[in-house]
């Protein structure tokens, strides 16, 4: 229990975790749909998955895993009082998030150029199960991409705040919470990789 009025470090973290649960359930709804449709159309899912670029998918996984490491390092640095290191790691985290988005854009672009997009001719010509696979693929990676984008903005703001000394060793719960958000985005991608790229 905390004194009223004082900054409540543990309370902020509980609030953040509860928010993460809502994110988890938001994607959870899509995971429910994915598992439902995959059980109804196992063959089509295998087939459609083969058309995705595994190399890009795995590369992006490594990018996000590394960015997660950097986010964790940013927090550790600030907690240990090495503030300039903390800002540097936060910038690097945001930068890798940017890399992820660029790779994702190329991937989507390649699909679009082959007519694979919602309502696209090539997509409509595919069997229904494959159409569903791509519908879920664009929805889930798209929603995830939006979360990465939000995370990039968030981490950049954190880097600025650490740089200016507004977030520091004695008061870094916002950095910790931003890190938690970034790690959750990473965890969701950890699940998206095998569901889409490795389902062949």
């Amino acid at each position: 229990m905390s004194e009223n009025g004082r900054r409540d470090y543990q309370g902020s973290k509980i609030g953040m975790w509860l928010f993460l649960f809502t994110e988890l359930m938001l994607f959870g709804g899509l995971f429910i749909l994915y598992s439902g449709y995959r059980s109804l159309h196992p063959e089509s899912f295998h087939h459609a998955s083969r058309e995705l670029n595994v190399v890009l998918g795995v590369a992006n996984t490594l990018v996000l895993l590394t960015s997660s490491l950097f986010a964790a390092l940013a927090l550790t640095s600030v907690q240990q009082g090495r503030h300039s290191d903390g800002a540097k790691w936060a910038w690097l985290t945001a930068g890798l998030g940017g890399v992820f988005l660029v790779v994702k854009a190329f991937e989507w672009g390649a699909k679009f150029s082959h007519g694979i997009y919602p309502g696209g001719k090539a997509l409509l010509a595919l069997p229904p199960g494959e159409g569903l696979f791509y519908g879920l693929y664009f929805t889930m990676t798209g929603l995830h991409g939006l979360h990465v984008l939000a995370g990039v903005v968030l981490l950049s703001v954190m880097a600025l705040l650490v740089g200016k000394g507004r977030v520091h060793q004695g008061d870094c719960v916002v950095l910790e919470n931003s890190g938690l958000y970034w790690h959750l985005v990473d965890v969701i991608w950890i699940f998206l990789l095998p569901l889409f790229y490795l389902a062949a």
């Binding site: 470090y9 490594l62 490491l69 964790a72 390092l73 550790t76 719960v173 990789l193 095998p194 490795l198």
Partner: peptide, 27 residues
């Protein structure tokens, strides 16, 4: 718990290594 635990950079790096290995294993 009150102020946040500090995880050493070496631990974080090892976890990252494990994550990369698991990814390779998965693929």
């Amino acid at each position: 718990q009150e102020k946040g635990h500090i995880v050493e950079p070496a631990v974080l790096a090892r976890v990252w290594g494990a994550l990369v290995c698991l990814t390779i294993g998965l693929v």
